[in-house]
Design a protein around this nucleic acid. Sequence first.
DNA 1: ATCCTTGCAAACAGTTTGCACGCGG
DNA 2: CCGCGTGCAAACTGTTTGCAAGGAT
Lengths: 161, 161
Amino acid sequence: MDTSLKGTLHKRGLRMTPQRQLVLDAVRELGHATPEQVCTRVQATAPAVNITTVYRTLDLLEDLGLVRHAHLGHGAPTYSEHRHRHLHLVCHRCGGVDEAPAELLTDVARRTLAELGFQLDSTHVALSGTCADCAGEPDDQNDTQNDDADPAPAETVKGDR
Amino acid sequence: MDTSLKGTLHKRGLRMTPQRQLVLDAVRELGHATPEQVCTRVQATAPAVNITTVYRTLDLLEDLGLVRHAHLGHGAPTYSEHRHRHLHLVCHRCGGVDEAPAELLTDVARRTLAELGFQLDSTHVALSGTCADCAGEPDDQNDTQNDDADPAPAETVKGDR
DNA sequence: ATCCTTGCAAACAGTTTGCACGCGG
DNA sequence: CCGCGTGCAAACTGTTTGCAAGGAT
């Protein structure tokens, strides 16, 4: 069968366009990226592409099962390839993002299912807390502290390696 | 020592105002409430109170340790009394909110701490998944489905009892 | 009489919607 | 040549900031 983007689209009576390919490529290249970041990336090649199109295309690609999004904090969600399934741990002090295997929550998922019938999706929303670096530091009163996770752009990722 | 709101404020050189008492009362009465909901509630008594003041006051009360906020989905955070510490389980289909004891994540917290030095705050962000009711239903294509948690106002809470 | 607090307007981030044009099939 | 897909402008939700008037101590 056809696994190309074009083929996947055609099966649904949808059309192949340069924008769609560019958005998919951008998500793949960027790893975790907000719609805004994807847009910027796409615009490096095709400056005319509008952020609206990026939003619509990301939705579509998610529908097609090619990408997925996760919420890392209060800000914009981040999109990544569908296969990228980790647990995200966001530090509410520095905004840094750690990754951990999704299996960490397997037991919890089993329990919520058994006790409440709740089917946990462990990768969709990041867990919040304080990272190792920040836990050591004094109780910053006036520093560049960040109550909620405000993931500084992309690079702040710590785990992943 | 003085445990009244007034006393707590004075210790910090802050002033007691009707707005602050009203916001605190509203949070206590409403249980989980978004700033918008708190504002509406406060305005039932004092129509002139501005949403800006509600935001500022909620921040302040959180600082004082009187209330806390949690993120139940992509929308507005919900504020509750400080003592309210549950795990929140949000259904991304219907937006319903379940509550579970925070202890569910104790083991996970132990592991993230040991393995990554990450100090988990289990109650700050809701876990995402599919609730018992929605798991049973067919794969709604066009129904009132709700990809992300979009907690319908307050009452949709299921657990808690 | 200080100076903390407030209300209001404006700006801001993130996202969605309506609409007309134009290209893909 | 039909109608999906796009760009653009506008609206919208949630939140923050600047500023001047007003009230608490």
